[in-house]
Design a protein around this nucleic acid. Structure first.
Lengths: 152, 152
DNA sequence: ATAATTCGTTAGCATGGCTAACTAACGTAC
DNA sequence: GTACGTTAGTTAGCCATGCTAACGAATTAT
């Protein structure tokens, strides 16, 4: 178990996997991020807008929690999105402290286009893999999604 | 957008995998990054310092290219690292325009500790997975490393 | 009614990305 | 050897995105 080269999957422990995963994630995102500049919106705004598009309207606090930022940060992100006409904001009837934030049609379109660009580029790389490798990645994505859901 | 629930691995195409991978990478890194706050240095500085530690000394321009940022950005990052005593800078004998940047012993120690913290935290999450899932991730990491190497 | 809590905003700070414009040094052509 | 173009880094100044502290307003609990 102390062979360092040529290790097979089963020989790699959680630490090795974590290390490789971390490094791979960094490099993947650096490349993917460049595709997003075409939208004219920054990464934080795009990410928050995506949550709204896929998850439907929410309050500012819930959106901040989903994005793992503090409320003041999200407040400013939402202000920027509103300024660009990508979200609209309305008061909550039941609790006047809350604000309900929702993506506009324009916001939905932008997210769809951004996703297409980003994903197309990454998918192009993945498309060159053997289908066996692609299946392995698909399985891994499921595992990662579960890991993230159950994070503590 | 059109990712459906209840699809099995083999039914997911490159686009779906790319989408899930992108999202998972974002969320993984957001969580991992929080471990780094203990170092007192920001993410850009830590990342650049890591390159120096693992890759040895280089010039500012090469470091900027490695980190995929523009020279002015790297100039400021390096200035911060120098201010914290994590790198030292010396003139290049052959070309006086260039500056050679290298991690100090303190810089090396900081990177090692940061990496340990980061990886330990992620590994702790992965350690809760079934060993079958962990093997799937390990395989995926190999595939990703290959994908990144062959990127074009 | 009053006190405590919760939700969001405002103000102010630091980091990190960019472009434009500059200086300094190098290389080349004459 | 001088003049010109190129290359490496820095400086100045913009914007986005993270934070904490402090606040106002609304809700909830006592």
């Amino acid at each position: 178990m102390r062979r360092m080269r040529n290790r097979t999957s089963t020989e790699r422990g959680a630490r090795d996997v974590a290390d490789g995963l971390h490094s791979a994630a960094i490099h993947l995102l650096r490349r993917a991020r460049k595709q997003d500049t075409a939208t004219g919106e920054g990464p934080a705004r795009l990410s928050a807008l995506s949550v709204l598009v896929f998850g439907g309207q929410t309050t500012l606090g819930r959106l901040a929690a989903a994005e793992q930022v503090k409320p003041p940060t999200m407040s400013r992100i939402v202000a920027g999105l509103k300024h660009s006409g990508l979200v609209h904001i309305e008061a909550d009837m039941r609790d006047a402290r809350r604000v309900q934030i929702a993506a506009t049609a324009k916001g939905v379109r932008l997210v769809q286009k951004a996703r297409q660009r980003r994903i197309a580029h990454l998918a192009k790389q993945l498309g060159r893999l053997r289908s066996e490798d692609l299946r392995a990645l698909a399985k891994a994505v499921e595992v990662l999604e579960k890991t993230i859901r159950d994070w503590r």
